[in-house]
Each structure stands twice: as C-alpha cells, then as structure tokens.
Nucleic acid binder design. Sequence first.
DNA 1: CGTTTTTGACCGGCGC
DNA 2: GCGCCGGTCAAAAACG
Length: 294
Amino acid sequence: MDENDRVDPGITDLSAESSWSFGGDSENVYLFGGSDRESSILSDFGWNLRPEAGSFSHFDRIGMEEDLARNDQPKSTCSTSTTGGGETVVQATSNRSMSSNSSEDLPEKSTESDGNKAAPETASKVKKKGQKRIQQPRFAFMTRSEVDHLEDGYRWRKYGQKAVKNSPFPRSYYRCTNSKCTVKKRVERSSDDPTIVITTYEGQHCHHTVGFPRGGGGGLVNHEAAFASQLTPSASHFYYSGLGGLQFPPQPPPLGIIPQSSSHQVPGEARENPKLPTDEGLLGDIVPPGMRNQ
DNA sequence: CGTTTTTGACCGGCGC
DNA sequence: GCGCCGGTCAAAAACG
C-alpha cells in the first residue's frame, strides 16, 4: 500500500456508509442499499449485481464512482444526453463524491492520475491531434471478483493496456464494439486489494445490450428484467426506480455484471437486444436528487 | 477471413 | 521547458 492509497476523487464509497445488504446465492448476488440514501443512489443508477454462475466466486459492490463530465457533447451520434442536464448533475455529483470521502475509504483511485489530471485528462483527452476529446459521463464501481473483465451485457473490444503507476496491475482499456457507440471502459485491479476489480465506464451506450449468452437457449431475457423478477419488491424498485429521470447519467452498466472466465466475450452469441424500458442504454439513467445534493 | 488482442509508439496535459 | 504519466493509435499477431 504504499501508494495504493490512491483515491479516486470520484468514487463514492457507499459501503462505507453503511448498510448495504446482499442477497442471493451462488448464482445471484444482489446488493441493496440499506438506507434511503443508498437506495436512491443505486436505483438511480439502476444497478444491481448479478454474477452469473460459472466462475463466479464472490461479488459485491464496494463502491462506485461517478464522474461526470463537464462537456457533454456526444461525440457521436449516439448519445444522448448529456447536455444541459448533464452539467448540472455533474457538478453536484462531483461535489458529493469528493467532499464525502472517497478519499479515505477507497483505496483506489482510478488512477487517473494523480488526481489532478484525472478530471481533465482522463475524462477527455485527446482524440486526435488538435482535436480535443469530449468529456463524457463517467462512473466507476468496484467489484470483488476473480476475473478482471466482468461481463456486463455489452461487447467490448480492448484497445489498450497500460501499466499504471503505483499499481502492480495493468489497466485495460475497452471500447464498445458498436461502431456508433463511444462508450469506453477501463478495468483495473486494485493494488490495495487484488481481489477487487475497478471498472470505470465513460459515456453512454446508444444501443441495447447484447443480451446474455446463455439466456436459455430459447429466449434471452434481458438481464434487467430477469434480474428484477428475481428480486424482492424493494429490490426491484431499486433497480428501476431511476428510469425516467435525468439523462445524463452514467450509462450504467447494463446491470448485470457477470464474471467471465476469460477476457473476451463470446462471439456470436450475445447480440440480441433486450427490450429495455427505455431506449438509452439500460438505464437511462438518472442521478437522483439526493446524489446531486450531497 | 474477419474480429479481437497485444504491444510499442505517440500525443497531450500537468507538475515541477 | 522538461519529464512524467495516462490515454489512444495502429500494426502485427492470435483466435475462432
């Protein structure tokens, strides 16, 4: 830990605040916010965890980060929203996360840089020469898993890997394979706790998830739906409650996070689009008022 | 043969 | 101005 103490300014350590409870079994793990605040936060993001059977060992959400960008212009056709609403939210969120804590509890920072650069740099760097990159909504979460790249319903193509300072583990950079989608994600293992995988998503998907490979042979179900159906009412609520709100949100992972045994996803399989409640990526996202205010 | 991964080089921002 | 560092590009290799 010497230097593992990097803390991502943007990460909110929900777990530290409390009462998260987990439910599920070897196949499904659900994380519920123990208080209104947590619930609202998660629900806004529309998150739930659903490790899938297989190599899954233990999953739980340790914290999450959201970093919204200030400029939200979608680089491509996809995006949605991040326009005005995004800005507002962003600021709020940022404040919350930063002021709250993140620094202490989270052992890791996204390594974006020393912290300072993080915002400007990571969020958006350069796209090409002379052209600046647009910053997009970003958020991260930590998951305890043995596999680095967690299946989240989307297909990703790795475009880079770099050793990060202060961490023995390299950081991998992925881009959504959908040509119109500019969503990117970074995956790295916590140097502090190697069992923790930090996944940072940037941007919003403009398409649906591909679906799970093993939906059942016949019909795939979108994980959200599937997941929701298994949850208790409150959990379900938590999962869907955020829809319809703001749009800037961090495009959350499709919600189902599943560990994979290998880093690549299956080729032909998952490509169907589940029917989501909304068109934007899975959760369209929202950031709850609570979050912004805090 | 098409797609994805690997990996070194390059670019740009930031701190000193 | 220089060096460090994170992020991205792109060619080659690996895979299915």
